[in-house]
């Protein structure tokens, strides 16, 4: 039982990270029907920006929690800028092109960004300043590290914030309208380009937050760390019903829990396989995901 609870804690932590990445995929897909392959790279870039900026802020002698939160905010801003640039250069001119063309453009951007990270940051793991978040406590026999608490708290805060943004603000309303019907939303005066740009920025900022937390959790980042979590997070988005924000959150937690429990009880080497098998099984029996999809199939 203790073992189960321990794994449950780990699964929720990992699931939160996947949920944050999956949101970026699902929001982008919901609006422009693009599997944004570069999204995993935003996650990796966020991880790198976290270690660079937090490391630099720590040298200024500011208190650790200021460094942590400021560094995180700056890294999220950085990735938002990166995503907006990528969208402007690689996706916007292709709004009317075939889907495959945009997909390959995204693949090209993914390879480009990954190698850009490698060239500027080196091929080796970059260590995180984990000493500031070390330690933990135990409830019964279940040990919980402070980092897990931080991850769950930050994830929860971001998910609530995103929900408020999407369902309570004007820009959120515009995003939902654009995702539902681009022609009609354009007719009532919603600037689709701006909405799409904002969507990319928000998704990338969430991915950056996930990247930093993964960096702290595992203690290091690598230039190619975006690929595997990227596809798993996309699997999570599909699992929850693509275009569906609540679905992406649920899907992220499902994939995280499946991975951790499969690793704990079945085989740790094949844990990645189980995530994909779940994905295939769900798509086979529920082709629109758990929560149903929410996609506008018309082109901009």
């Amino acid at each position: 039982m203790d073992y189960f609870l321990q794994q449950l804690t780990n699964g929720v932590t990992l699931g939160g990270v996947y949920a944050l990445i999956a949101l970026g995929y699902t929001m982008v897909y919901g609006i422009i029907q693009l599997i944004n392959f570069a999204h995993g790279e935003f996650f990796a870039a966020g991880g790198y920006m976290g270690v660079i900026l937090i490391g630099w802020l720590l040298t200024t002698g500011a208190p650790p929690w200021v460094c942590l939160s400021l560094g995180m905010l700056l890294a999220m801003g950085y990735c938002a800028m990166l995503a907006m640039a990528v969208e402007k250069v690689a996706y916007k001119p292709l709004r009317k092109a075939s889907r495959l063309a945009v997909l390959l453009s995204a693949l090209g951007m993914s390879i480009f960004l990954q190698n850009g990270l490698m060239l500027t940051q080196g091929v080796y793991d970059k260590a995180y300043p984990t000493q500031m978040t070390q330690g933990g406590f135990a409830i019964g026999n279940v040990s919980i590290s402070y980092m897990q608490v931080i991850i769950v708290a930050v994830t929860a805060a971001l998910l609530i914030g995103l929900n408020l943004l999407v369902f309570r603000t004007r820009i959120g309303k515009a995003m939902r309208a654009t995702a539902q019907d681009k022609t009609m939303s354009a007719l009532v005066g919603i600037n689709a380009n701006r909405v799409i740009s904002t969507t990319f920025a928000i998704g990338a900022a969430l991915a950056a937050a996930a990247g930093i937390m993964v960096g702290f959790y595992y203690g290091s980042v690598r230039y190619d760390m975006g690929f595997v979590p990227g596809i798993k997070a996309f699997a999570a988005a599909v699992l929850g019903g693509i275009g569906n924000i609540t679905g992406a959150m649920i899907g992220g937690f499902v994939i995280g829990l499946v991975e951790i429990f499969a690793a704990a009880y079945i085989s740790s080497q094949y844990k990645d396989v189980f995530a994909f098998i779940i994905l295939i099984a769900v798509l086979y029996f529920m082709p629109t995901g758990i929560m149903g999809e929410n996609v506008d199939d018309t082109r901009v």
């Binding site: 690689a90 945009v102 390959l104 453009s105 693949l107 090209g108 951007m109 390879i111 480009f112």
Partner: peptide, 10 residues
Amino acid sequence: FGAAMTIMML
């Protein structure tokens, strides 16, 4: 290679 792929698609 990545940049060329994107430029080609554009």
